[in-house]
Design a protein around this nucleic acid. Structure first.
Lengths: 259, 259
DNA sequence: CGACGAAAATAACATAGATCAGGGTGAGGG
DNA sequence: CCCTCACCCTGATCTATGTTATTTTCGTCG
């Protein structure tokens, strides 16, 4: 993980292979590993914002891999309420193994325009059969995904609106940072206040009020889909953010506040 | 765990092998498969109520399998708040593959006295290398566990206290039913109102009031750790319960309301 | 450039659920 | 047999967040 110095020239380390960046948060990959990942990402599909990549009830046929753009998993209740249960950023896999199930119990929707790789079960099997580090990496990825889901449960169950939003912002910043899409406290942030409301179990009105509080307190700037975290340390503090659940603990790896 | 009262002759299908019952909700198992599961469950440990099976920060060394009793995953915040993020009932695995991680990001605590099998990574590998149906079953189990975690997110984010509690009660009833520990709307229910509060993100006071509403509305009886669901259909209705996320959809299998 | 729709902001008011402060009850243990 | 401790229950009050409704800003597209 190389650090960047100047605020801006933000060269992306692996513009073409975010997945590799993601898995390398856990394990080192060989050139062959990277080639295998690239190989498996050839079958690409684009999804327009606000369209579903896959809908509740569909039979899952592929493993999806986010190459670019943001997406969300969501569930809808008969009374119309919607909960975003998780978010996908570049480098995230949807569900290694989903195709075991008969039908999706939730939908996956595009937030921005999406570039996704569609990987067949056969390709997945070939990958895991021949590339043990990737296999390990995928298991790690699944474990982290579960850990994030648990943290969201905690977030919704126990944190106030203010803490909850701060926590979500840090999490996303951290996740983007590990794939080289966030530095110096700054990252793209395409969620609308409505999306944030659906993700945090709050109202859009209250999200609006609370974001303003965060701004007033000098913690963040958020404007035109750009997030700037002004004081990460205080953000971590007020939201009781503990990064252990992201399991970014490869040997020799460490995150540094201004990275 | 001995069964209760009169009511009916509730014969348990697989008293000694709950896991098998669980996995058979998804796939058929051969006699050899069952033998392998029994084999791997030899190394047993007991945990007293309110003690941790494993604590946040510990390095995970085994896969745990619940042979008897109830447990919960929980996370604690620096300000003392506690969230139960999931519940384990007999037949549940803790985390196939956890041992990949350096340290636990949450604790697992016993609710009742617990009988757990401790399975080593080697044993797991041997199991998955030789028993493909079990391997498939374990993947299914992991997918269902994730789906439950997402449903909890939805539950906390969008349902009212009344709906939320009703939903949780049905889920647990269903899960117990698939391993033969619940029939005719009745099952053991060892959670205190405090536990329920920690699991639903409510106050114990409000859980109390809400349970009384559920009783008043003729939906449940809950007394001395025994739950009776009086009107499953209405419960499903008011809580907007949709069983699809449990993926109990093996061919030829179906749940029936009074089972 | 103007105009239209989506997103953000504001304000007044309503309420589910939290908080606080007790009181009651029943099962196990000495 | 009574004590005790955990659990359950109750009532009064408070507040974080929801609701409804309207206005303002912004980005895009003709």
């Amino acid at each position: 993980m190389t650090t960047l110095t100047v605020d801006l020239g933000s060269t992306r380390r692996t513009p073409d292979l975010v997945v590799a960046a993601k898995l390398e948060a856990f394990t080192r990959l060989s050139a062959d590993d990277r080639a295998a990942l690239a190989q498996v990402s050839r079958n690409v599909r684009f999804v327009e914002p606000r369209r579903d990549l896959i809908s509740e009830g569909d039979r899952p046929r592929y493993v999806h891999l986010m190459l670019d753009g943001w997406a969300c998993r969501y569930k809808q209740l008969p009374d119309g309420k919607r909960q975003i249960v998780s978010l996908f950023v570049p480098g995230d896999f949807c569900d290694v193994n989903v195709y075991i199930l008969r039908s999706m119990d939730h939908s996956i929707g595009a937030i921005t325009r999406l570039k996704v790789a569609m990987i067949t079960p056969d390709e997945m099997n070939a990958l895991t059969a021949t590339r043990p580090r990737i296999t390990q990496g995928l298991w790690w990825h699944e474990l982290v995904t579960s850990a994030i889901q648990r943290e969201w449960t905690l977030n919704l169950g126990q944190r106030s609106a203010y803490e909850r939003l701060a926590h979500l912002l840090i999490e996303l910043y951290m996740r983007l940072n590990t794939v080289g899409r966030a530095q110096h406290g700054r990252c793209d942030f395409p969620l609308t206040q409505n999306d944030l409301a659906d993700a945090t179990g709050l109202t859009a009105v209250h999200v609006n009020r609370t974001l303003q509080e965060l701004r007033r307190d000098g913690l963040i700037e958020l404007d035109r889909k750009q997030l700037q975290i002004l004081d990460l340390e205080r953000m971590v503090d007020v939201s009781m953010f503990n990064a252990n659940y992201l399991h970014l603990d490869r040997e020799g790896r460490h995150l540094d506040a201004n990275e």
